[in-house]
Design a protein around this nucleic acid. Structure first.
Length: 196
DNA sequence: CTATAGATAATCT
DNA sequence: GATTATCTATAGG
């Protein structure tokens, strides 16, 4: 089996979301023949006021309570889909939000779906990423394999920074946004107050 | 470069 | 009825 065909398995996801988010940076993500390298991911925990699972299981976030590796996709602000991967079985309700990837293949299809030419804006943000890959709520609650979502291992270990999360109003101070330092494909730059 | 407003609809209280 | 894990365009430094 070639390294490229290998997939990140269930044990990888059966860990706390912070560890999974950090280790996902640098991994390959693909769906429907398009994809790239994850450069930005955020952790959402069980006892985390910013997490959809914080107030328990509801119809929307029920996928967060599935087994590690389950796909959780939800609609935000009525128009953007956000892609998450469930982690830590014992945590029940923990997940990682995929916020940005560096496009590497299927770029033409992604440009068409996004209606944008600039590769830097193709997948730089959770809503942009799902639009580029053609991901919607139709894969919510599915296992990765059933969803056709492939997560592959790193080829190199990136330099990672842990900084505060984006777009939330609770628990802003927690540094659970993991980004590849120096990447030009982030949804937003690394705050300058972050030490090397 | 940063900051802000408006769009837009499901979800939860 | 309030809130929201966003995006785009636009205005200003």
């Amino acid at each position: 089996m070639s390294p490229r065909a290998r997939a990140v398995g269930r044990a990888f996801f059966d860990r706390p979301p912070q560890a999974v988010a950090e280790d996902l940076v640098g991994c390959e993500l693909s769906f429907g023949g398009a994809g790239g390298v994850i450069v930005e991911a955020e952790a959402y925990g069980q006892d985390d006021p910013a997490s959809h699972s914080f107030r328990g299981e509801t119809p929307r976030c029920s996928a967060m309570f599935g087994p590690p590796g389950t796909v959780y996709v939800y609609l935000i602000h009525g128009l953007h889909w956000c892609l998450n991967l469930v982690t830590e079985e014992r945590g029940r309700g923990a997940a990682v939000l995929i916020r940005a990837i560096e496009p590497t293949h299927g770029i033409h299809a992604m440009r068409e779906r996004r209606g944008v030419d600039d590769d830097r804006l193709l997948c730089a943000g959770p809503g942009r990423l799902t639009q580029a890959l053609g991901i919607t709520g139709h894969i919510n609650g599915m296992a990765r394999s059933a969803a056709g979502l492939h997560v592959g291992p790193r080829s190199t270990v990136p330099d990672i920074a842990c900084v505060p999360r984006i777009g939330i109003s609770e628990a802003r101070e927690l540094p659970w946004r993991m980004v590849a330092r120096g990447s030009r494909f982030l949804s937003r730059p690394i705050p300058r107050s972050t030490p090397a």
